[in-house]
Nucleic acid binder design. Structure first.
Length: 476
RNA sequence: GGCGCCUUCGUCUAGCCUGGUCCAGGACACCACGCUUUCAAUGUGGUAACACGGGUUCAAAUCCCGUAGGCGCUACCA
């Protein structure tokens, strides 16, 4: 069995987005699964569309997600002679021809074809140019391109690993431009030449390339090169069912880093977009992804990128993190003063189960790491209670807590017992005591459990917050 | 316009090849209940889909034909 070679071949025209990331992931998974090679190739043959920093962004994104490549980045702009060489060979063989048609004429041809409800493609005018004509025009310095001489009858078909057998009548295939008038290759030439030159065995790319694959097949046939296996991936769409783009929100692969997602969670999520291992399991480690992944199980229909499920999945990953790992990751989002670290780690632990994104700990830190909370005193009063009653209860709580040892604060169970006894003794209800207690302790309507929070805070701080809460309520 | 591809709950999907076990299974979201001082986590339950029309067959989500809709391509972009 030949060694599996795959490549991820983006053009550096912007940041790596979610769709590109998924293409990279599927290539990478296939390479790792088959102990093959994963090449990063940069398709920069359109010099006019280059975006500065794009290659760095692609590299950085792949690195953050852990999709390491074995070779590259290989820049097509540095391989121009290679494409030229094969272009010459094609010309010599009579598989390609020079075309001198102007952009105006091409536009005109298209227009007529459209009116006549015909396929829009080059009409082949320059196919019939004699050698003398060509030589003469070139001598005169006429601008020209090289076109592929697509057979005019018959049909071209191939077996796509995902889509199955695809057949297109050659009459519907355009005489594709191979070399532009400035001598640079187009995608189609450079792509095929490189895939052959790099011994790529599996071409795994987005579905948008499906219609141009027959052209590539013809190119392979004319060069008498063995065909790679083609595997087109269904598109990733936005919630409005159009191609995922900036107006759909976060689409840059690295944006998810800033938002507080774990790379493994994002990878897990996008792996399931268009692929399913046919077992009722959703959370896969990278290792499991590699062993379970199968190109032939990829779906044909495009999938909508729905961030709600990603959020859930990210939450699952956060929940399963060791506290130290979580704390470590939080460093990317905020700086914690040395003296706050212990308390902060306790608070984070109490919030771990409810985090969807790491970034949310910024809010948590901002809220808890202050001397006093800011909140509307009204929230101290439980739904069934009154401010007057709550003031009395808070007073009782404070008196009681002053008698409790700091030692007892170390265990939330102990605190719980103390308060259970206290409530019984004073003939109060859980709600009327625990609600104002918790709100004063956390400064929040919704928060983790009050005893855990009290324990994290310690006696002194807890009392401080309670006294402040009481004061707030007394002031009205 | 031409060419190609696609179509199962709101979303991701299982089932389709090898028709019956599917009045269609799981997950997210949503709703209810349980736990409970609130929220979350968690447990239980619920709402919700075979695009449409014909055919083949004892039987069709599954096979065939057609229709509609969506998407992609249609550049000297990739």
């Amino acid at each position: 069995m030949k060694k599996v070679v795959v490549r991820f071949a983006p053009s550096p025209t912007g940041f790596l987005h979610i769709g590109g990331l998924r293409t990279a992931l599927f290539n990478w998974l296939w390479a790792r699964k088959n102990k093959g090679k994963f090449i990063l190739r940069i398709e920069d043959t359109d010099q006019g569309r280059l975006v500065e920093g794009a290659v760095d962004n692609i590299k950085e994104a792949l690195q953050w997600y852990g999709l390491d490549f074995d070779e590259g980045p290989i820049l097509q702009s540095e391989r121009l002679e290679l494409y030229k060489k094969y272009a010459d060979e094609l010309l010599e063989k009579g598989s390609a021809y020079q075309c001198f048609c102007s952009a105006e004429r091409l536009a005109e041809v298209r227009k007529v074809q459209e009116v006549n409800k015909q396929a829009t493609k080059y009409d082949g005018l320059c196919r019939s140019l004699s050698k003398e004509d060509v030589t003469q025009k070139i001598k005169a310095g006429d601008s020209h391109v090289l076109r592929l001489k697509v057979p005019q009858d018959g049909s071209t078909s191939f077996d796509d690993l995902v889509y199955g057998k695809i057949t297109v009548a050659n009459a519907n295939i355009d005489d594709q431009v191979l070399l532009k008038s400035d001598g640079w290759p187009t995608y189609h030439l450079a792509n095929v030449v490189d895939d052959h030159d790099m011994a790529v065995t599996h071409v795994i790319r987005a579905e948008e390339w499906l219609p141009s694959t027959p052209k590539h097949i013809i190119l392979y046939q004319m060069m008498d090169w063995p065909l790679p296996v083609f595997s087109h991936l269904p598109m990733v769409l936005g919630p409005d069912k159009t191609k995922l783009s900036k107006r759909h929100g976060a689409v840059a692969a690295l944006e998810y880093k800033k938002l507080g997602y774990l790379p493994e969670a994002v990878l897990n999520f996008i792996a399931l977009l268009g692929w399913n291992p046919k077992i009722e399991k959703e959370i896969f480690s990278i290792k499991e992804l590699i062993s379970e992944f199968d190109l032939s199980k990829v779906n044909k229909a495009s999938a909508i990128f729905n961030i709600e499920k990603l959020d859930w999945m990210n939450g699952q990953y956060i929940k399963n993190l060791e506290l130290d790992q979580l704390l470590n990751m939080s460093k990317n989002f905020l700086e914690i003063k040395k003296e706050d670290k212990l308390f902060f780690s306790k608070v984070v632990r109490l919030h771990q189960d409810r985090l969807k994104k790491i970034k949310e700990i910024v809010e948590i830190a901002n809220h808890y790491l202050v001397a006093s909370y800011k909140y509307d005193p009204k929230i101290l009063v439980p739904k069934s209670g009154s401010p007057e009653e709550t003031i009395i209860i808070l007073g009782l709580i404070i008196t009681k807590l002053k008698t409790v040892d700091q030692k007892d604060f170390d265990q939330d169970d102990r605190l719980k017992n103390i308060f259970e006894e206290f409530i019984q003794e004073k003939e109060l209800t859980n709600k009327s005591v625990l609600w104002p207690l918790r709100v004063a302790i956390t400064g929040l309507e919704k928060s983790p459990g009050v005893f855990e929070m009290m324990s994290a805070l310690g006696k002194q701080k807890a009392l401080q917050h309670l006294e402040e809460g009481l004061k707030k309520l007394q002031k009205g």
